[in-house]
Simulated scan of single mutants.
Amino acid sequence: MPQVQSSLSQLEGLCKASWEQLKLLDKADEKRKQGKGEKKRSQVDSSTDGTVRRRLPKFLKECEERLKVLRAVHRRVINRFHSFLLFLGYSRAMVRDIRAEDFCKTISDYRAYSGADDMSCQSTHYPCYNSSTCHHRSCCWN
Rank of each mutant, 00 (worst) to 15 (best):
E62M: 10
K105W: 01
G115L: 08
R66I: 00
A112V: 01
F84Y: 15
L67S: 10
R54F: 07
K23M: 00
S9R: 11
D97M: 10
L86K: 13
S138D: 15
E12T: 09
F81M: 09
V4G: 02
G50L: 03
K40A: 14
K68I: 03
S114T: 04
D97Q: 12
T106D: 11
R53L: 13
M94D: 15
E38K: 13
K105Y: 05
Y113R: 12
L67A: 09
N130V: 00
I98V: 15
A28C: 10
Q10S: 06
L67M: 14
H82Y: 03
L22W: 06
C63W: 10
C128K: 05
Q3C: 09
S138I: 06
N79Q: 13
D117T: 03
C121G: 09
G37C: 02
L88R: 12
V73D: 14
T124K: 05
C134H: 03
M94N: 15
V77S: 13
S83E: 07
V4T: 10
Y126H: 12
E101R: 10
S42F: 04
K31M: 14
D49I: 04
K36M: 07
P127C: 15
S132V: 10
C15F: 03
S91P: 00
G89D: 09
S138G: 10
Q43C: 01
K33V: 09
G89L: 05
S108K: 11
Y110P: 02
L67G: 14
E30I: 05
E101P: 05
S114L: 08
A72T: 14
E65Q: 08
N130P: 00
V4D: 08
G35E: 10
S7D: 11
K36Y: 04
R80I: 01
S131C: 06
D109R: 00
C121Y: 06
R53E: 14
V73E: 14
R96K: 14
F59W: 06
C128D: 12
P127H: 14
R96Y: 09
N79L: 12
K33G: 02
S18E: 04
Q122G: 01
G13F: 02
A116D: 01
K40M: 12
R80P: 00
Q122I: 07
R111Y: 04
C139F: 01
S7L: 10
K68F: 05
C63M: 15
C15V: 14
S91N: 01
H74Y: 13
R96E: 15
N142T: 10
K40Q: 14
H82Q: 15
F81S: 08
K33S: 11
D109Y: 00
G13S: 08
S123H: 04
V44Y: 02
V95Y: 10
Q43A: 06
A93Y: 04
